[in-house]
Simulated scan of single mutants.
Amino acid sequence: MSKKQKNSKKPNKKKFTVEENESIDACLERIKQEGYQPVRRVEEPIFIEENGEKFPYGRNIIFDAKIAKHEH
């Protein structure tokens, strides 16, 4: 492990969730501003239960991201 990695306070990987009323582009910009780059997109369904039956209600979009490599 190099000194640069030991002194780094940021985790190597982080998950970002697209917030309610946030566009995917806005989330991707937030990821970039924090110094990460997305490597995987996951969509999780959200269900609600009415009268004992489950119905699709929406979805969560989650990006797995890793620290961006800076070009010098």
Rank of each mutant, 00 (worst) to 15 (best):
N51K: 12
I48S: 12
S23Y: 03
E20Q: 09
K13V: 13
P45G: 06
F16T: 08
P56T: 08
H70T: 14
E50Y: 15
D25S: 14
F63K: 01
S8M: 13
D25G: 10
N7T: 02
V39K: 12
Q5N: 08
I31N: 03
P38C: 01
F47G: 01
Q33N: 14
Q33V: 05
K14Q: 12
R30P: 00
H70E: 14
K4L: 06
E29W: 07
V42P: 00
F16L: 12
E71F: 03
Q5G: 00
N21V: 02
H70Q: 14
T17S: 10
F47Q: 09
I62G: 00
Q33K: 15
I62C: 03
I46L: 10
G58Y: 05
A26T: 15
I31Q: 03
P45W: 05
S2K: 11
K10Y: 09
N60K: 15
A68T: 09
I46R: 15
V42M: 04
E22R: 04
N12A: 11
K9L: 11
Q37G: 02
R41C: 11
S2P: 01
P45N: 07
S23F: 01
K15Q: 14
V39Y: 08
H72N: 13
Y36W: 15
R41W: 05
V18P: 00
H70D: 11
M1K: 06
P45K: 09
K3Y: 13
I31L: 04
Q37K: 15
K32D: 09
F47A: 04
N51H: 12
F47R: 09
E49K: 14
E71N: 08
E19V: 08
R41V: 09
K10Q: 09
I46H: 06
A65V: 01
